[in-house]
Write a protein that binds this DNA or RNA. Structure first.
Lengths: 264, 264
DNA sequence: GAGTGGTCTAGACCACTGT
DNA sequence: CAGTGGTCTAGACCACTCC
């Protein structure tokens, strides 16, 4: 036997066929029973091979229909120039600010194509949030949970948890009411209403398999990773005005960061 | 039955035990045969539940030893200030440049703790590389393949493919010889020897499951994602002097990007 | 209803780990 | 050698899709 393991050999053959283009994106694989016959093996062994390919993101299984070669997903690009872009709009007119937010800036879609949900809760900072915001554990913070959908899709393409110290924003009660979402001009405009200017944004990017809950909410097929961005917005006094955890499906998202260097 | 699916119910129970701390990191789970008995089911069903938890990165299977709750990995942080840091060192003395490179800067380890391999090949740009470098397809480029290990580990913690237009660097033949690696001061110093200064670095970050080959080389256990950084180094004339693809294990790497904003 | 994948069973036999 | 996980088989029965 080639590799020694039958299911790896079967997976290897199919993988080669997919890479060579013999099986092109969207193509239907032979039925599992047929593959089992062809490779003189049992169905469970074929299924083990297919599970491996699925975990590599090479095929998609569709119950009752068949197994298919996975089509590459069109990527949404999220660029760090969004932060300066949003800052520049803070002082713009209301109608300009209402016309598009950072997400529209990224996706190139207009406001009508995106659906948006926001939920605000006043909570006490747990260890993670307190650490990120530089507060004592238990300090009062505003938790904001966001979801964004393409209008015609059933599952959101991002999950966002944002935290702000309550002290920073109580001077403008409108900021505590989720009914005001989507806020024209975004978080930086919100902060501007209470006299806060951002100096820099620090983003920490990691990749990991989704938790069971994320997999559910984002409707991720097995074997898709998520990209997690932990974003700290730091104001001109060095305080963290906002800390957000942004969970994005890895197969649909690219993040672009430009680092400008000082000239000699 | 709770969820309807037996293996999901079993996975759910174990997941809850792990999250609550009842099963702590490193703890050994009951044997599969025992779990099967306890849940009044067959071993394959238990194995299906364990495979799910493995794909979520919650457990690790060790052949002949048992199934264990996964310990969180210590993360290596890669920060985008590395680029300015490397630029500042371009004009430093040789002994300073030899003392540490960007990887040491990131990991906080010294030169002795890291092992390094480099392989240079002159190749013709394929569509991807040509597009990234702004060249015609088939243009001659220098391909550099890098691997970095912790000295006492058997598999590398990154895979790097770098491409530079040959034209830019032929004026210094030393740049074409892999025997000169690791080059003191890194790529920015190499470019400096042929009169090139970098203006900015653009990094595109994605997350995806590893290919079979990457999984092999990085010795990734099932269900771990990789982070891919496509890095373009752009010089003061707007040319792409170097394009690299950097593959990092998602469970061991965080990338930090700081975006400085202009003041009002 | 025909075709296809999903869940689950029961068990043989092999491979690896540690005593 | 005992304990444990890995591979593979053979097949029953269920769930979903599409005609």
């Amino acid at each position: 036997m080639a590799t020694g393991k039958k299911f790896e050999r079967i997976a290897g053959e199919l993988r080669a066929q997919i890479r060579s283009g013999e099986l092109s994106p969207g193509a239907k694989l032979s039925a599992e029973t047929k593959l089992a016959e062809e490779h003189a093996t049992s169905v469970p062994t074929v299924r083990q091979a297919l599970a491996l390919l699925q975990s590599e993101g090479m095929i998609e299984k569709e119950h009752g229909r068949g197994n298919f070669v996975r089509r590459p997903r069109r990527m949404v690009t999220r660029s760090n120039d969004r932060h300066q872009w949003e800052k520049d709009r803070v002082t713009a007119d209301l109608d300009v600010r209402s016309s598009a937010g950072s997400t529209e800036h990224d996706t190139g879609l207009d406001v009508d194509a995106l659906v948006f949900s926001a939920k605000y809760t006043r909570v006490r900072a747990d260890a993670e949030v307190a650490d990120a915001l530089g507060l004592e554990q238990g300090a009062p913070v505003l938790e904001r949970i966001y979801r964004t959908w393409h209008r015609d899709e059933r599952s959101p393409f991002n999950l966002v948890r944002s935290y702000m110290p309550i002290d920073l924003i109580t001077s403008n009660p409108a900021l505590l009411d989720e009914a005001n979402e989507p806020w024209p001009g975004g978080t930086q405009n919100q902060l501007h209403t209470v006299g806060i200017e951002l100096d820099r944004v620090v983003e920490r990017v990691t990749a990991r398999p989704p938790t069971a809950e994320e997999s559910d909410e984002l409707d991720l097929s097995v074997g898709i990773a998520v990209m997690v961005i932990e974003k700290s917005s730091i104001d001109t006094n060095g305080r963290v005005a906002d800390w957000s955890e942004i969970v994005l499906p890895g197969d649909r998202t690219a993040s672009v960061f430009t680092t400008k260097l000082e000239r000699w």
